[in-house]
C-alpha cells in the first residue's frame, strides 16, 4: 500500500491506497469526485483530464502515487463558488455538449489550452489542440466555438483587471 497526500481542489487529502491505483480511480472512488470520467481507459479519449500542478494530464494514465505531493484540480474545483468558470459558462452558452460525457475533460483541456496561448487562439489551433479529447456527439463545432468564446472572455477579463 502507498501512503499518499496531495491537494485536491485546494483541500489537503491523505490516504492509503494500493500502489496500482490510478489517479482517476483515487479521485472518483476515494474522494467521491465523479466529475472526472473514464471513457476509453486506454489514454485516447481525454474524458479523464485533470490538472496536476497546473498542467492537463490524463488521470487514467498516472498512478495516484505519482501525483502524491502535487496540486490536483478537477472539474469540481473550477467554479468560483456559485459562479461558473468562464470556460464552463461558454460551454453552456454555446451548447458545447450533447450527452455531456466528454465535457469535464474537454473543459479541463480548454482551460489548459487557453493558459498556454496567452496571445489568443484561432479555430485551427483549437482543433489541433483538441487532439487528445474525443467527443462522439457534437462533431466538435460548438466545442470549438465555446473554447474560442471563453478565450476571448478571459482575455477581456484580464485586460480589465490590468
Amino acid at each position: 500500500m502507498a501512503e499518499i497526500s496531495m491537494k485536491v481542489n485546494g483541500r489537503a487529502v491523505t490516504a492509503e491506497v494500493e500502489d496500482r491505483t490510478l489517479l482517476v480511480h483515487f479521485l472518483r472512488e476515494h474522494q467521491g469526485l465523479t466529475g472526472t470520467h473514464v471513457g476509453c481507459d486506454t489514454s485516447q479519449c481525454g474524458a479523464c483530464v485533470v490538472h496536476v500542478d497546473g498542467k492537463a494530464v490524463k488521470s487514467c494514465t498516472m498512478l495516484a502515487a505519482q501525483a502524491s505531493g502535487a496540486q490536483v484540480l478537477t472539474i469540481e474545483g473550477l467554479a468560483d463558488g456559485g459562479e461558473l468558470h468562464p470556460v464552463q459558462a461558454a460551454f453552456r452558452e454555446h451548447h458545447g455538449l450533447q450527452c455531456g460525457f466528454c465535457t469535464p475533460g474537454m473543459i479541463m483541456a480548454a482551460v489548459d489550452m487557453i493558459r498556454r496561448h496567452p496571445g489568443g487562439l484561432d479555430e485551427k489551433t483549437v482543433r489541433a489542440e483538441l487532439e487528445g479529447n474525443l467527443c462522439r456527439c457534437t462533431g466538435y463545432h460548438n466545442i470549438v466555438k465555446a473554447v474560442l468564446a471563453a478565450a476571448e472572455a478571459m482575455a477581456g477579463q484580464k485586460a480589465k483587471a490590468a
Binding site: 489514454s43 481525454g46 483530464v49 496536476v52 498542467k55 492537463a56 494530464v57 490524463k58 494514465t61 498516472m62 483541456a109 489548459d112 489550452m113 498556454r116 489542440e129 487532439e131 487528445g132 479529447n133
Partner: peptide, 9 residues
C-alpha cells in the same frame, strides 16, 4: 507527439 496531455508527462 501524442496530444497536449501526453506531452505534459
Amino acid at each position: 507527439i501524442g496530444d497536449p496531455h501526453v506531452r505534459h508527462m
